[in-house]
Amino acid sequence: MLDRVTSSPTIDNHLASAGGADFADITRNDDTLRRFLHGLPGVDQVGAEARAASLGTRSIKTTAKAWAIDLAIRMVDLTTLEGQDTPGKVRALSAKAMHPDPADPTCPATAAVCVYPDMVAVAKQTLGTSGVHVAAVATAFPSGRAALDIKLADTEDAVQAGADEIDMVIDRGAFLSGRYKQVYDEIVAVREACGPAHLKVIFETGELQTYDNVRRASWLAMMAGGHFIKTSTGKVQPAATLPVTLVMLEAVRDFREQTGQQIGVKPAGGIKTTKDAIKYLVMVNEIAGDDWLDPDWFRFGASTLLNDLLMQRTKLTTGVYSGPDYFTLD
């Protein structure tokens, strides 16, 4: 901590006036939180979207592209979050996570598989010591509409079953009605319940609607101790978008400048193609910087993205366009 404090005097003053980087004075109650969060610089929608779009026109070629595809594969949280999930499905998915392209041993594994808590044990068993993490969506995912003790039990259950990472959802109702303290306390409590597991905090940005809210939620989650901030559950449209991710990347960049603490970012849902993934990586590189170009700091929550990455990877190595028949479904 505090190994990389540079200057961002506005937020610095903002933090200082609110009691310094330990956030105690900011997070005391709804009023102090509102003053802080609403004092953050606003986000102009049109400007943010234009910036995201312009980054999307960056052109990546050859070697950089090969490197980017492998990186993107390593950043994938390969996800299945369906009512119809079965141990068989999760085992297959886990196998795919470890060896995305069975025909090519140089193909890296994904970062994690992401499942519901009751599937953690199955995933863990399959993944073993492969290094692929198990992430579990907890806290009454996706709506988060349950009592706190149930959310905590959900979390503890997943951790006990072997989850390395917990993807929680914030209480959007509380957030939108200004009960920031409640949202904050819940994140703190879930983080505690995580024990050694890393915590990703899902905002469901499609429900927060404005970029101002996304920026505020980002700071709230970072102050509360989340290791990652994550856009969406994948169950609400729009899910991850480039501009939402842009705003979150700006937030983690600014947060590290203030506190020295680096927080990860995970866009989830709606990222389907290699082209999309590379646009995200360009954005990570230009907004947060290349410190974030690592699976420890940036993830893609996705299911179908992986196969497109694999197809493009094969194209780059063989020079031949592949087809879906040549890659496993899960």
Binding site: V46, E49, T210
Partner: peptide, 10 residues
């Protein structure tokens, strides 16, 4: 003639 621009967003 003065022309003023402003983004429309939320």
């Amino acid at each position: 003639t003065k022309t003023v621009w402003h983004p429309i967003g939320v």
